[in-house]
Design a protein around this nucleic acid. Structure first.
Lengths: 138, 138
DNA sequence: CTTCCTGCAAAGAGTTTGCATCAAA
DNA sequence: TTTGATGCAAACTCTTTGCAGGAAG
């Protein structure tokens, strides 16, 4: 489905970069820079947060990674492009990825109305997840 | 179209709050806290940034204002709910509000697939605006 | 070898908080 | 009056940057 992530040849293939990419590939929701840091620390890797930020910046610049912020959170989340559309439960914070995003029709309409040449999008939807609908305690 | 903004009665109606709301009502795109600060300063009002942040927090908590972050920007933007869906030009940064968001059909589909009770959404679309399409200099 | 990358520590930027004062109600 | 709201300055958190040492090619 999603093509394998490749670091452009103009960058060196260091073990830190490799590790960061692996974490992103295994994550199934957008995660924080610090999550990556902690996961790698836990695996016994000695990496610094600034290395993670520097590499995430590079990946975002290259279009390989999507950076986003969730409502009422003030730290960035990072994910591979196929995880950029998500549902968030307002009660428990659970995140569910929306795949097969039916956004393309919408995109056509937008293109005509605003004459923008559309290059990308990011959709964030809020709601109450099935579990939280059951437990009706605020 | 959009209903008049009302501060819930449990809060006092101070001149600072009134001023902040006015700025948000007059803004036609999501703006930064500092934009509000500068606009009010310019009008001769003596207000502090922390008051602005405190009031924006309150407004967001009350659901009267939407907080969002734009890609490659690390400061929050605030807007009335009718301006939460927008197009951003990747070249010049121009922001165009999407109104009559054709998102409702999509919403139904999401509801069925994920069984979330949808309460809100925020769409960010990237592209190249008509002006930047003409001037083909990177 | 050369150049890019990393880790560390310090700096920056945006946002939040404590506290005394002020002003709605 | 009473109590919530403000302004100021200091504190915080996330992110970025400078620099010297390290590793990829």
């Amino acid at each position: 489905m999603s093509k394998k992530l490749e670091i452009p040849k103009k960058y060196r293939f260091t073990k830190q970069r490799k590790a960061i990419l692996e974490v992103l590939e295994n994550a199934n929701i957008p995660i924080h820079a610090e999550d990556i840091y902690l996961m790698l620390k836990e695996k016994g890797m000695d990496i610094s947060l600034s290395t993670i930020y520097r590499n995430l910046d590079m990946l975002v610049k290259e279009g390989l990674v999507i950076k986003s912020y969730m409502m009422n959170e003030d730290k960035a989340r990072f994910a591979l492009p196929d995880k950029k559309n998500y549902l968030v439960c307002e009660k428990c914070g659970k995140i569910v990825i929306i795949d097969n995003c039916p956004f393309d029709k919408f995109k056509e309409e937008l293109k005509e109305v605003h004459q923008f040449e559309i290059t990308g999008h990011c959709i964030e939807v809020y709601g109450i997840c099935p579990d939280c609908q059951k437990t009706n305690e605020s």
